[in-house]
Design a protein around this nucleic acid. Structure first.
Length: 320
DNA sequence: CACTTGCTTGCCGAACGATC
DNA sequence: GATCGTTCGGCAAGCAAGTG
């Protein structure tokens, strides 16, 4: 069981993380500035790795698309890859020089006599070798770009999550709530979406509307029920393999903002709903109609996924 | 049936105020 | 200055109805 940092426990050294998170929030999910920041850091990392490569031609892509992974195996692979790249570059360099020297000799002789057949054959071989080497390099670059593309795509879905993950830990495979396994109910790959969905399942709209995310004595509204929040924590942690030690940071950095916003949106919607219901009561004050209105309202408020299409349209009209 | 249009919804960025 | 809750408005996706 993990604990979420209490509102009163202000963590002063978290400023940078929070700033990064704010920057990182975006739609499309990605954030304009945060996205840029993220991209910058990734690229910076790549360029740092490139620095170790004695690259004098400037044409080689020195990044390894998997470099952001923290595993030692990957580091080893990266070093091995760089060594291989150096070897290939060196071979290519010497072959190239040899070919150039050979070509020069041929051209010098050409001043005095025609190229003989052997010379032509050598030139053809050298050209073929060079073309083969270039093709090899292009294939290598293409492969790296594909890997990088996939890596970027993964990062786009869960940009910051790898920092807080610990894949070697053992996590719950079942987090039961009302007879269902919370790990199976939402298939969202996005941790933000999953977190919001689970929170909406664990709490009613009234509870979400009348509470703040974490209890804080300086605010009148109470925090969400700690017991169910613990269940929520279990579900999110198990689903995305978040290291228990880092969950507080993960929560503050990656989830707090979006969840707090969700509570505010829920509150806003709820308030608007109540206002409209009040107006409806004024216009149609009969008890029967009022009761109907409330029933319809509750079906919206409960967020029941099983809703008739017609009813949905009706509720939409109530909402706006 | 495919496409367009209008509306609703959820999410997010930006900004603000309160508090420490 | 940092942190957090809140409000407002924009945007994209989803949905239903309309149209050819």
């Amino acid at each position: 069981m993990f604990t979420i940092a209490h509102g009163t426990q202000r963590v002063q050294d978290n400023a940078a993380e929070f700033s990064v998170y704010r920057a990182r929030r975006s739609r499309g999910n990605q954030d304009s500035m945060p996205k840029g920041k993220q991209s910058q850091s990734v690229l910076r990392q790549q360029s740092i790795n490139t620095i170790n490569v004695p690259d004098d031609d400037g044409n080689e892509l020195g990044f390894d698309p998997h470099q952001h992974m923290q595993h030692n195996d990957d580091k080893h692979d990266l070093m091995e890859e760089q060594v291989n790249q150096n070897r290939v570059r060196t071979d290519l360099y010497f072959n190239d020089n040899r070919n150039n020297m050979h070509s020069h000799n041929l051209f010098d002789e050409d001043n005095n006599q025609d190229l003989d057949e052997e010379g032509e054959e050598n030139l053809a071989n050298a050209t073929n070798n060079l073309a083969g080497d270039v093709q090899t390099q292009l294939n290598r670059i293409d492969k790296q770009l594909r890997s990088l593309s996939k890596s970027v795509q993964d990062n786009t879905i869960n940009p910051a999550i790898t920092t807080y993950q610990n894949l070697s830990n053992t996590y719950s495979t079942v987090v039961p709530f009302n007879g269902i396994n919370l790990l199976n109910v939402a298939k969202a790959a996005d941790y933000k979406k999953y977190s919001r969905t689970i929170l909406q399942m664990l709490f009613t709209v009234d509870e979400l509307s009348d509470s703040i995310l974490i209890a804080n004595p300086i605010y009148n509204k109470p925090g969400l029920d700690p017991t169910r929040m613990a269940k929520w924590t279990d579900a999110v942690s198990a689903r995305f393999k978040i290291d228990p030690v880092r969950f507080d940071d993960f929560f503050r950095t990656c989830l707090r903002r979006t969840l707090a916003q969700m509570l505010c949106d829920t509150r806003r919607k709820h308030k608007r709903l109540m206002k409209n219901v009040g107006a409806q009561r004024h216009s149609a004050p009969t008890s029967a109609q009022s009761d109907h209105g409330i029933v319809g309202l509750q079906s919206v408020v409960s967020g029941s996924p099983v809703m008739q299409a017609g009813q949905q349209v009706h509720n939409r009209n109530i909402l706006h």
